[in-house]
């Protein structure tokens, strides 16, 4: 991005500081999104300065930046939306968790997605339990009826585990399924 050059050093510092703040607000986004946002704000500042009637660089710049607003406030919704779009594109859990954090105030849909990820983590922990305590982890039936799926500290008399080591495979499948559903939800929400 081409920076705007000011003749007044104070104006230059104000400009540089503002764009440093912008950079900090958007560093969580992809390089392309960061460049896009910075370039658009830079263009806004440049056009405002070009169109200003007065010649005082500092006064024009301060007025323009005040009208734009603090980057921490005005960029928050833009960053949140772009992060959701990135999460929907990438399937990367890091982006998805960041998007969840940024959009935690956007309601029940995100709560459901967060719940989905909690289930994925829980399934993942079941694999560890199965390796540590194979006789207490799995799909348990008792008297021909479902008793438990997961880890149980007490296996009651008459209960038996059905899946054996296949339990790990089933749990991995479930993790993949929930991961896929969650990411599809992200994409759907992004389209809306």
């Amino acid at each position: 991005m081409k920076r705007i050059n000011f003749t007044n050093t104070t104006a230059q510092k104000i400009y540089d500081d503002y764009f440093k703040r912008v950079g900090r607000c958007i560093k969580i986004l992809s390089a392309d999104d960061q460049l896009e946002i910075s370039m658009e704000l830079n263009s806004h500042v440049y056009e405002a300065i070009q169109g200003a009637a007065v010649q005082d660089e500092i006064a024009i710049l301060v007025d323009t930046l005040e009208k734009l607003g603090p980057p921490e406030e005005v960029l928050q919704p833009l960053v949140a939306e772009k992060k959701v779009a990135q999460a929907g594109r990438s399937f990367n859990p890091k982006h998805i968790i960041q998007a969840l954090f940024l959009n935690v105030n956007r309601g029940a849909a995100y709560f459901l997605i967060a719940l989905g990820y909690l289930l994925i983590i829980s399934f993942g922990s079941l694999i560890i339990f199965k390796l540590i305590s194979p006789s207490h982890t799995g799909l348990f039936v008792k008297d021909g009826h479902f008793y438990a799926f997961g880890h149980t500290s007490i296996v009651p008399p008459g209960a038996s585990e059905l899946l054996g080591n296949s339990f790990i495979f089933i749990v991995i499948l479930l993790m993949g399924l929930f991961y896929f559903i969650n990411t599809m939800l992200f994409r759907l929400m992004n389209r809306k």
Binding site: E47, K67, L68, L75, E81, K82
Partner: peptide, 28 residues
């Protein structure tokens, strides 16, 4: 373009737009 759009809104509507909020809206 963004800055021009802000001026156009102000000219026609006399609404004092918080200029920074325009870009998230345009993105949406």
């Amino acid at each position: 373009y963004g800055y021009e759009l802000v001026q156009e809104i102000k000219t026609h509507t006399h609404i004092d737009v918080a200029e920074g909020t325009l870009y998230p809206l345009l993105n949406r």
